[in-house]
């Protein structure tokens, strides 16, 4: 009989303990997302001078006839398809390298951490200088060998190449950190057993390392894909989307729509589209991961 009030008190305590987290989540995630969703259904454009009005899905329909949106979407998809596998391969290589038994571990770890610790905008500015057509480091080195380097940012292909390479360099270190943790969780005995059975290095890698690394690879892949879809800082600081608007990503177009054009309704609609794409990709990966384990 006396158990009931105690149970209720415990439940109240539970709610009280969860409440701060719920409020925080509501304030910084749920409310802004709902507000964004609402905004995307309005014509709000601060440069129009018109009052905010509900327009249903018009902003979304308009996007498909907007050449800049289509181009930004294409650029974002291609950038993701190039830099995610690129970053994964480079990261895997770095992780394997760091996992070798070095006598001094700190130089390797430091080299691994550096790109990860560098702010994105800073990375973009440094590489913009590396690739500068006149004063750049890369063309300077090429000149030493008598090669006239291209004016990287004058060409759609080379601009894209430079941006991709920078993103791969920057993101490989995050991938490597995740994979290194995965590698170190693989028991040594498995390799010993494999080598007693006569498996060479390559067989060990295929038969032991890769299968056991799968969960870590999946985690890195999910994070990388989502951040790749949201790419902003590096192309913004390196090319400003140029030449023309050939390296403009979806995230940059959101910025241009809201901050430059003050077309908040349109900007919100693109943001929702980008969020939906990220959601679909995450669900797809989660399913694959669950099916595999």
């Amino acid at each position: 009989m006396t158990r009931l009030p105690a149970e209720r008190a415990e439940r109240l305590l539970g709610i009280a303990l969860v409440l701060p987290a719920l409020l925080l989540l509501g304030g910084i995630v749920i409310y802004p997302v709902l507000r964004l969703l609402g905004l995307s259904l309005t014509n709000l454009d601060l440069s129009s001078g018109l009052p905010e009005r509900f327009v249903g899905l018009r902003n979304y329909f308009d996007l498909w006839s907007d050449p800049t949106f289509v181009q930004s979407l294409t650029t974002t998809v291609i950038l993701t398809v190039v830099t995610v596998p690129g970053g994964m391969l480079a990261g895997l290589g770095l992780a394997l390298l760091a996992n070798l038994g070095f006598r001094r571990k700190w130089p390797v770890r430091l080299a691994l951490l550096m790109p990860w610790a560098m702010p994105l905008a800073f990375t973009g500015l440094i590489f913009a200088w590396f690739f500068d057509g006149e004063y750049g480091l890369i063309n300077g080195v090429l000149r030493l060998f008598g090669i006239a380097g291209p004016i990287w940012f004058n060409s759609v292909f080379w601009s894209f190449f430079a941006v991709s390479l920078t993103i791969i360099w920057k993101s490989s270190s995050f991938v490597a950190l995740v994979l290194l943790a995965g590698l170190q969780a693989i028991p040594r005995e498995l390799y010993e057993a494999a080598s007693i059975d006569g498996a060479g290095r390559w067989r060990q890698f295929r038969g032991v390392t890769l299968p056991l690394l799968r969960p870590a690879i999946a985690v890195a892949l999910i994070f990388r894909t989502i951040t790749a879809l949201q790419t902003f800082d590096i192309p913004y600081t390196m090319t400003k989307g140029g030449p023309g608007s050939s390296t403009q990503t979806l995230a940059m177009y959101i910025y241009q729509s809201t901050v430059d054009d003050l077309a908040l309704g349109r900007g919100a609609a693109i943001a929702i589209v980008l969020a939906l794409i990220s959601l679909v990709v995450s669900v797809f990966y989660m399913r694959q991961l669950r099916a595999a384990t």
């Binding site: 940012f153 004058n154 060409s155 030449p243 054009d261």
Partner: peptide, 16 residues
Amino acid sequence: SEIIRTDFNAVMAGTT
């Protein structure tokens, strides 16, 4: 402004 400067820039870069 965005329309004019983007297309102008593409011509100067030689991509359009």
